[in-house]
Computed example of a mutant assay.
Amino acid sequence: MPIYNKLVRDRIPEVIEKTGKKFHATVLSQDVYIEELKKKSFEELEEYIAAETGAEALEELADMFEILHAFAAVHGSTIQGVEKIRKEKEQKRGGFNERIFLVDVED
């Protein structure tokens, strides 16, 4: 029997049940949930980095976006609230569209 010990999407137990398999799962406390979301975010980032096609990359970005939604909710906000902060930061400091790579700064 494979051991997973990881955070999964909400409907995964339902998907497993439809296959007729038995499983064990638990609902995490808020603190443990946040820690597991952090682990999951690294897992999804690694999968994005390993993506070999644009379609695979977009699939992994969608997973990362789902995690961002969960992080926003955990911190009492929404993705729209996070987007508002992102836009404010972009106006003050810019985005990453110009591909600027800072080498050094003279003292």
Rank of each mutant, 00 (worst) to 15 (best):
Q80M: 10
L28Q: 12
E43Y: 04
A72W: 06
F71N: 06
F23S: 01
M64H: 00
E47C: 01
D63P: 08
L45A: 12
A62S: 15
P13Q: 02
K84P: 00
E98I: 08
A50V: 00
H69S: 09
H69V: 15
A50I: 01
E36F: 04
E106C: 06
E43T: 06
K6D: 02
E98P: 03
T19F: 01
R93K: 11
H69Q: 15
I16S: 05
L37S: 07
F65Q: 12
M64A: 13
E59M: 01
T53D: 05
V15F: 12
F96K: 10
K21R: 11
Q80I: 07
I16A: 08
V82W: 13
I16D: 09
E43R: 03
H69G: 07
R9S: 07
I49P: 02
R9D: 08
E35T: 05
G20H: 09
A62M: 07
R11G: 09
P13R: 07
K6S: 03
E60W: 00
I79Y: 14
A73D: 10
Q91P: 00
L58K: 13
D104R: 14
E35V: 02
K22A: 14
A73N: 12
R93L: 10
L58R: 13
K38W: 06
Q80N: 12
T53V: 03
A55G: 05
L102K: 09
I79R: 10
E90G: 02
I67F: 02
K39H: 06
D31K: 11
Q80K: 12
A57H: 00
K87R: 14
E36T: 01
R9T: 06
A73G: 05
R99V: 11
V82A: 15
R99A: 09
K84G: 01
I3V: 13
E56Y: 01
K84H: 13
T78E: 06
K6E: 12
A72N: 10
H24R: 13
V105K: 13
T19R: 01
K6W: 00
R99E: 08
V82T: 14
F23D: 04
G95R: 09
S41R: 08
K39S: 08
M64C: 14
L58T: 13
K87C: 05
F65W: 10
P13A: 03
F65T: 12
A25L: 06
V82L: 15
G94D: 01
